[in-house]
Each structure stands twice: as structure tokens, then as C-alpha cells.
Design a binder for these strands. Structure first.
Lengths: 188, 188
DNA sequence: GTCTATAATTCGATAGAC
DNA sequence: GTCTATCGAATTATAGAC
């Protein structure tokens, strides 16, 4: 009995989180109202507060996502650019996940809390993943520019939706960006 | 007499616009309140409405900025990457201008009106400037990736403030990005 | 666990005195 | 042209019934 209620509350909690990510990703923090999030989740607005305490804590919970970069240790350097762009763009391309990644990039622009989250995620996951493939020294030399380029593609494609970058199939996009990534690795 | 009043109202109008750009650039559209903008401009909140009609029209006026890219027609191709990065980053580096450029990049992430403004500015000014130097065909082939890369640097440095890109002197940053820009021009 | 009702703020915008 | 006072709407968050 208690188990049933617990399961049900788990589902409610996840429904709230899913709806919150959708709204935060689409409209940013301020314009996303608890009422609208609750409506999307088909529950009462007061439940959002009951489950997450406040709008700000709900936002924090929504920001808790992963790049899910694989371990690149041992990847041959000529395959690294392709691996980087493929795995880096994957969480954005994959729409089964309702905008939890776009959320970070979008909100980091006007919300310091989200920005700190994104910086830390890039520092811990992206840079570390790179270090496994390139070693500490070269990863430090290349990491910044690589991050800027990949962030640029993501911002242009998923946030700003600027053509032609926003319209290309992901494979064509990768082809277009690969030469630059190779250059960075070669010159770093 | 009428002239004196007109000049004074001109100053007031400009003070409001300057304060608005500061707040919009720092906090985005929603979190920037008319009251706070008026306080920064040292005037009464109702004057903001009187001068600009509404918060939204004030926002539109704040978005009306220029990349001020020079005419690149005839620029030798080996000098083009350096010219691009220098002139593209200039309006962001120049802090005499109180964040009117950062405003665009930041707000475009969560405000469709700002996004449309930025897209149009890039389309009209950046792409056209490139067309003068490369011709229509090659400008179309290279423009997208170049825009993504430069936007990536700008987003990383001025909006996200991710190190090391955010901390580098602008000359060192240009050196770091130049190889990639050359590669794009060479492969486009 | 869920919902109704509402308290407490805060905001954009207006009316009118000076 | 500028300021005081305030309206009306929207928001987060809470209290308490069921």
C-alpha cells in the first residue's frame, strides 16, 4: 500500500521534472511559471512546491543532466574529431529527452546558476574525457578552443537556430565542422 | 526654450536606453524591471513608459545595434581570418559601449524577438560582408561554419565566461582561433 | 497525497497634480 | 516634462479541507 503510493508519487515527481525541463528549455527560468509546468504535468500547482520546495530548487533539479561522453582513452587521434562531435551533439539531437540539454545552454545565458552548472559540467566531463585521449598537457592546450567550437555549433543550431547550421542533417553538419576540429588537434 | 527642453529630453531618453541595455544585458528581458532601469537612469519609472511606450518597445530599441563590420571587399584571403576575428570581436571587447552587443547574444537564448534580431543582423551584415571578400558562392559555403565558430567564441567568452577562453588577452585568443578559420576558408 | 482558497509580493501601466 | 499615487494583473508560496 505504502509502496503503491510511493510509486505513484515517484511518477508524479518525474512528470513534474519532465514538464519543468520542457518549459525551462523553451522559455527560460523567469517566463516558466509553476502554473504552466503543473498544467503540462496535469497536476496541481501546489504539488510542485510540495515535491520540490521552491521554483529555484525545481530549477536546480532540472539542471542536473549529463553530457554522457564515453571514455575516449585510447581513441586513435585521427578518429577523435569524429567521436567528439558525434557524442557531443548526441544529447541535443536525441529528442526522446525533452530538452534537458538545450535547457542548460539556453538558461546559462541569463542565469548564473545555470551558467555555473554548464561550466562545471564542461570542466568535469568534457575536459576529463579529452584528457583520457590526449594526455593532460595537450588536453589543456586544445580543450578551450574545442569547447568553444562545439558550443558554437550547439548554440547556433539548437538555441539560435541559424541557417544553414540549424537545417543540416547531423551527418552533414559533422562533415562541415570536422576539418576545424582536426586543425585544432593538429595545432594544439 | 523649446530647444532646451528637447535637448534635455534627448539626454533623458539616452540615459534610459543606456540603463536599459545594461540591465537587459546583465539579466535578460524578464528579470530586468522598468523600476530597476529607471533607478539606474536616475529618473522616474513612469518616464520609461512615457518615452518608449512599453517595456517591449524599449527592448526593441535596445536591440537596435550594429556589428559595424567594415567592407571586406578586396581583402586578400590570407588576411581575411585575422580581419574577421578582429572586427567580429571588437564590439564585445569595447566596453565603452555598455553591453549593447552582449545583450543580443544573451537575450537571443530565451527571447525569440532578440533571436530574430540576431539572426537578421548576422544574415545581413556578416554574410554580406563575407560575400564582398569571397564572392557569393564561397560565402554561402563558408558563412555558416564561420558564424558558428565566431558565435561559439563570443558565447564562451562573453556570455558563459568559460576559462581559458574568457581570460585570454584578445590577441592570444585570436591566435588560438585563427588556424580553424583558415581551415574553414581553405576547405569551403 | 491531492486540491481549494488565498496570502503576500511584485510588476507593467495609467491618471492626474505640478 | 517630471513626479506621486495607484490600479489591475500575475506570480510564488502557504494554510487547511478532504
Amino acid at each position: 500500500m505504502a509502496q503503491l503510493l510511493t510509486r505513484r508519487s515517484q511518477r508524479t515527481r518525474e512528470a513534474i521534472l519532465r514538464a519543468a525541463r520542457m518549459h525551462f528549455a523553451a522559455d527560460g527560468y523567469q517566463r516558466s511559471t509553476i502554473r504552466a509546468i503543473a498544467a503540462t504535468a496535469s497536476i496541481d500547482p501546489s504539488l510542485v512546491i510540495r515535491y520540490f520546495g521552491s521554483k529555484e530548487r525545481l530549477f536546480d533539479a532540472s539542471l542536473d543532466v549529463d553530457l554522457e561522453l564515453p571514455d575516449l582513452t585510447g581513441t586513435p587521434e585521427e578518429l577523435l574529431p569524429q567521436a567528439l562531435i558525434t557524442h557531443f551533439l548526441a544529447p541535443w539531437e536525441n529528442d526522446s529527452d525533452e530538452g534537458s540539454m538545450r535547457l542548460l545552454l539556453r538558461c546559462a545565458a541569463t542565469n548564473e546558476r545555470a551558467a555555473e552548472h554548464l561550466r562545471q559540467m564542461l570542466h568535469e566531463q568534457f575536459t576529463d574525457s579529452l584528457r583520457g585521449a590526449l594526455g593532460a598537457e595537450r588536453a589543456a592546450a586544445c580543450g578551450g578552443v574545442l569547447a568553444a567550437q562545439l558550443l558554437g555549433v550547439a548554440y547556433t543550431r539548437y538555441v539560435l537556430r541559424l541557417r544553414p547550421i540549424a537545417d543540416l542533417p547531423v551527418a552533414a553538419l559533422a562533415e562541415l565542422v570536422l576539418p576545424s576540429l582536426r586543425t585544432v588537434l593538429a595545432s594544439g
